[in-house]
Simulated assay, not measured.
Amino acid sequence: MADLRSGGGAPTVLRVVLGRRLQQLREKSGLSYEEAGHALDVTHATVRRMEKAEVGLRIPYVEKLLRTYGVTESEEIEGFVSLAREANQPGWWHRYRDVLPEWFSAFVSLESESELIRAYEPHYVPGLLQTSRYARAVLRSGMPHAPEEEIERQVALRLERQAVLGRAEPPLVWIVIDETVLRRSIGGREVMAEQIEHLIKATELPYVNLQIMPYSAGSHPAMYGPFHLFRFPVEELPDVACTENLVGAAYYDQREDVSAFLEALDRMCGQAAPLNRTAGLLNALRKEI
């Protein structure tokens, strides 16, 4: 997996995929990093970094490596090169690099290209389901000294992230939120009423599953904090889990680590209110507000 915390901008998922395919071709050909680097007249570290998507895919290098690895069909080479050019294009989030921390650009990259997004959130409504006014209130509380222009740029970024839900084939979004999320007043009564109404409409979408963890459920497997899990429509990429903190994030793609997050989510889904009760709980809360 690419080092998602490395400099130079988070790689697109396609670049990660192509890096893995280059690794598979190199290993199939029986060549070492050093031998592949010798073919390019570069160090073995350059080949390693290409495979891990830590650098862009230089087209002359890609063409030379494919031939070195025994790929001879011109159509296959042209197809790979075409994908490499596409992968080298910065993601849409690059437009927000003035307000987007490096660690979070990796998150947005994963979110944008997932086919399944699962999450647990104990503090606030996840970004994909926030209204603009709720998002503004959350951002202002977390960035009390930021100028208004920066807050508005952050709101615009958050709303553009939500475009993933409008794709022709949107990801399945399955989120468990604490009851606390709905009872903590963020932005005032009007903002919360609007936000809850937005969640009610979201639950009507066939690709959004929202469950509420009630106070009465007691302790559960993820009381240590929020996390996300991403799954992709390409076999080369493993599931990736992400945990956030005040100054960054940690990403996990090792099977044993991701399995722990998956197990916690599955257990929480069993403890939380069933999906068919979510709309009723939200409507009842809306009346309270």
Rank of each mutant, 00 (worst) to 15 (best):
M1E: 12
G8P: 09
A10F: 08
V17H: 01
G19R: 07
E27K: 14
K28F: 09
S32A: 05
S32V: 00
Y33E: 01
A36I: 07
A39V: 10
L40W: 00
L40M: 03
T43Q: 13
T43K: 14
E51A: 09
G56F: 03
L57M: 13
I59W: 00
K64A: 15
Y69R: 02
G70V: 04
V71D: 01
T72K: 15
T72V: 12
I77N: 04
E78I: 02
V81Y: 00
D98P: 03
V99K: 00
E102A: 14
E115L: 04
E121D: 13
G127L: 04
S132N: 10
R140Q: 13
S141R: 11
L165H: 05
G166A: 12
P170N: 01
L172I: 09
E179Q: 14
E179K: 04
T180F: 12
V181D: 01
G187L: 07
M192K: 07
I200P: 05
T203N: 04
P206R: 10
Y207W: 14
L210T: 11
I212D: 05
M213E: 07
A217H: 11
A217Y: 08
G218D: 11
G225L: 01
P226F: 02
F230I: 00
V234T: 13
E236M: 08
D239N: 10
D239Q: 08
L246H: 09
V247H: 13
Y251I: 06
Q254A: 13
L262N: 13
G270C: 02
A284F: 09
K287H: 13
I289V: 14
